[in-house]
Amino acid sequence: MPETTVSPVTSIVRRVLYAVFALFAAVMLVYLDRGGYRDNNGDGVSLLDSIYYATVSLSTTGYGDITPVSETARLVNVLVITPLRVLFLIVLVGTTLAVLTERSRQAFKIQRWRSKVRDHVVVIGYGTKGRSAISTLLSDGRKPEQIVVVDTDQNMLDSASALGLVTVHGSGTRSDVLRVAGVPNATAIVVASNRDDAAVLITLTARELNPSAQIVASVREAENVHLLRQSGASSVVVSSETAGRLLGMATKTPTVVDMVEDLLTPEAGLAIAEREVEQSEVGGSPRHLTDIVLGVVRDGTLYRVDHPEADAVEAGDKLLYVKKVTPASDR
């Protein structure tokens, strides 16, 4: 069911008004039946005395200087004043404590999460690109609680929370927001902003907070790639040109596009993966392995399988290969 969010201050003010209403009702009941009450000084019960009696009665102070003496006044105290006293305490004291406890609990949970989380992935922007990136991370075995989403759209964050992801509301261009998201301790950062200028600023801020993280950024225009590289991006994906190339290929060789899409979709079919070289494979040619090897990563540099440097596999190399993925429904 939809839930209306009310700020703690509004909640407290609203309940204080309820308590004042309960106090006013008690004052009127006492004043209208003032003949049934007796004041120790013997001068009768005035309006001020009624306010005084209602206040000390509802707050359970009860000095005893004004007391109900008639049967009617005592019956009203039992049937009306006492329930109002309970309502007054619940509304004013109970709600205030609940609001303060909830805020403290949330602050404690955030602080505990920030102190423990390590090697997580921060995705800045939960649009089409951000959601696709998260889908790939989840299919690769990343746990939802190890993924943090940063966005300014609360509806987007609610959708991410429904998947079990950690969410942070705010702009990724702000360093304080990125600190809350745990960027200083993240192992990877995905910049999926819809604007290239924002992507540059986000990348620059993230790199300043975490000099060693793998930062992957997306841009729409190829001319902005060098700006992201200079800002500290480890990898840059040109979304518009990549989509345009696939569209152009689809006009003549749609099956090639289908194969590329299959390789880029990790849920089923074929997928491009990376693995360590096994000891038994050292010294051999990657072309003769049982896996379909596309490239060799050596000291952080990628060599295609037809490159002279990739003729023989060395210890410490990583292989980019094509693997078959079994759908989750068939496992």
Score class of each variant (00 low, 15 high):
residue 3 E to G: 14
residue 3 E to S: 10
residue 3 E to R: 15
residue 4 T to S: 05
residue 5 T to R: 11
residue 6 V to L: 14
residue 11 S to D: 01
residue 13 V to S: 09
residue 14 R to Q: 03
residue 19 A to S: 14
residue 26 A to E: 06
residue 28 M to F: 08
residue 32 L to G: 07
residue 33 D to C: 07
residue 36 G to D: 14
residue 36 G to F: 01
residue 42 G to T: 01
residue 43 D to K: 11
residue 44 G to L: 05
residue 53 Y to K: 12
residue 54 A to M: 09
residue 57 S to F: 08
residue 63 Y to C: 07
residue 64 G to Q: 02
residue 64 G to R: 12
residue 64 G to E: 01
residue 67 T to N: 00
residue 67 T to S: 03
residue 69 V to Q: 11
residue 69 V to N: 04
residue 70 S to E: 05
residue 77 N to R: 09
residue 78 V to Y: 10
residue 80 V to N: 00
residue 80 V to C: 05
residue 80 V to A: 15
residue 81 I to V: 15
residue 81 I to P: 02
residue 84 L to C: 03
residue 92 L to I: 13
residue 93 V to K: 02
residue 95 T to F: 10
residue 95 T to P: 00
residue 98 A to V: 11
residue 99 V to D: 07
residue 100 L to M: 10
residue 103 R to I: 11
residue 112 R to W: 03
residue 113 W to H: 10
residue 120 H to C: 03
residue 121 V to M: 01
residue 122 V to R: 01
residue 128 T to K: 15
residue 130 G to L: 01
residue 136 T to N: 04
residue 144 P to N: 13
residue 146 Q to K: 12
residue 152 T to K: 15
residue 152 T to C: 11
residue 156 M to I: 03
residue 159 S to W: 07
residue 160 A to F: 05
residue 165 L to N: 09
residue 166 V to G: 05
residue 167 T to E: 03
residue 172 G to M: 08
residue 173 T to V: 15
residue 173 T to S: 13
residue 174 R to I: 00
residue 175 S to Q: 08
residue 180 V to Q: 07
residue 180 V to M: 07
residue 182 G to V: 01
residue 188 A to D: 04
residue 188 A to R: 12
residue 195 R to E: 13
residue 195 R to H: 02
residue 196 D to V: 06
residue 198 A to H: 08
residue 206 A to W: 00
residue 207 R to V: 03
residue 210 N to Y: 04
residue 215 I to W: 07
residue 220 R to H: 12
residue 224 N to M: 09
residue 224 N to C: 02
residue 230 Q to C: 06
residue 231 S to P: 08
residue 234 S to E: 09
residue 234 S to G: 08
residue 236 V to G: 03
residue 236 V to K: 06
residue 239 S to Y: 02
residue 239 S to P: 00
residue 240 S to Y: 00
residue 241 E to W: 07
residue 243 A to N: 09
residue 248 G to R: 11
residue 248 G to C: 06
residue 251 T to H: 08
residue 254 P to R: 10
residue 259 M to N: 07
residue 262 D to T: 13
residue 263 L to H: 03
residue 263 L to Y: 03
residue 270 L to D: 09
residue 272 I to E: 04
residue 276 E to H: 11
residue 288 H to C: 06
residue 288 H to V: 11
residue 289 L to S: 09
residue 290 T to G: 07
residue 300 G to Q: 01
residue 303 Y to K: 04
residue 304 R to T: 15
residue 308 P to T: 10
residue 311 D to K: 13
residue 311 D to G: 05
residue 315 A to H: 05
residue 318 K to R: 15
residue 320 L to V: 15
residue 328 A to D: 12
residue 329 S to P: 00
residue 331 R to V: 02
